[in-house]
């Protein structure tokens, strides 16, 4: 398989709340560690990225977070303004159009257009060349795609857009589509969680991606995978915690008297069940997609910081089969 980090663009998809922003940041850092100059593109959740790297805010202009790693935020309206300005060239007219109520309403209710324009912008980052040496400014662009909630979301846009549009927007849609479909240039990453709805949506996403679009999924991440502490079969927890040794340990941990033993047993059972559910969902994903599932372990730390991000990186590096 082509090394994922050697592509030009990574599109990280998944429904809201699955941890796309963290996975995107971890992938970007892996590429930096491999000596690449990387641009991390957020459309939302840039607050988390900024917090993680200890910067004030991430704006539309690429900002260097650490050596080799840059980040920016796409504001759809600003991107649209730039796009239209390049075509019409009269700033006042463009402002008049963009600020009109109709444009505003239309722009808001047509997410396809809004997101298509942003996807076009992401594509143009991959095309950006340095002025003197004419080499790409960014070795890799990692796009933390917005949560669309439904199916393929962003990835199917260029195809739809090229059907509906004409002129330069159609041309650009076709170019974006060609880029997305070129596996040597674009890698697709899907992030999901060990829960019913996210897993079903991930399976749906995979079917649509490989079926309707004829594309491949390069990396399937099961985030927040709960640890499998007891190795499969239901452990005899009542015996383990109820034995004299178990009682002594609980007395030491929870305080003497044993008033909370029943609750403790329930909590450990729930923990086993949660690990078991993760195992089941991972198996369901692997079977449904025929692909390896990279499990990123649940983070128990109260705050997700750079140290936790480093651990996620290591897990992903394993999943990619490359060096950590």
């Amino acid at each position: 398989m082509l090394n994922l980090l050697d592509r030009r663009l990574l599109v990280v998809s998944g429904k809201g709340g699955v941890g796309k922003t963290m996975i995107s940041a971890a992938l970007a850092r892996l590429a930096v560690a491999a000596g690449k100059r990387v641009l991390l593109v957020n459309m939302e959740g840039q607050g988390r990225t900024a917090q993680l790297f200890g910067v004030q805010a991430i704006g539309p202009e690429p900002l260097e977070l650490e050596s080799g790693l840059w980040a920016c935020l796409l504001d759809p309206k600003a991107v649209a303004f730039d796009f239209i300005l390049r075509q019409l060239r009269v700033r006042r007219l463009v402002r008049h159009i963009v600020e009109s109520n109709l444009f505003d309403s239309w722009f808001r209710v047509s997410p396809a257009i809004k997101e298509m324009i942003c996807l076009g912008k992401v594509w143009s980052f991959t095309e950006e060349k340095s002025r003197w040496r004419k080499t790409p400014v960014w070795d890799l662009v990692v796009f933390d795609a917005p949560a669309t909630g439904h199916g393929l979301g962003l990835l199917q846009l260029p195809e739809q857009a090229s059907k509906l549009l004409l002129g330069p927007m159609r041309t650009s849609a076709l170019e974006v589509q060609a880029m997305l479909e070129d596996r040597a240039r674009t890698g697709t990453v899907l992030v999901t969680l060990p829960e019913d709805l996210p897993v079903n949506e991930a399976l749906h996403f995979h079917r649509e991606l490989t079926g309707t679009l004829g594309m491949q999924l390069d990396l399937l991440v099961l985030n927040m995978a709960f640890p499998d502490r007891f190795g499969g079969a239901e452990p005899p927890l009542e015996d383990v915690l109820g034995s004299p040794a178990g009682r002594r340990a609980l007395d030491r941990l929870l305080g003497p008297g044993g008033a909370e033993r029943a609750a403790a047993l329930d909590a450990v059972r729930a923990s086993w069940a949660r690990g078991e559910r993760t195992r089941r969902y991972a198996a369901q994903l692997a079977e449904g997609t025929g692909q390896p599932v990279t499990r990123v372990p649940f983070v128990f730390a109260e705050r997700f910081g750079l140290e936790e991000l480093r651990q996620v990186q290591q897990t992903l590096a394993h999943g990619l089969g490359g060096p950590a």
């Binding site: 502490r229 007891f230 452990p235 383990v240 915690l241 040794a245 178990g246 340990a249 941990l253 909590a267």
Partner: peptide, 10 residues
């Protein structure tokens, strides 16, 4: 299995 159970609690 006890250490794993205690770890789960913690």
């Amino acid at each position: 299995l006890l250490p794993a159970a205690l770890k789960a609690l913690l």
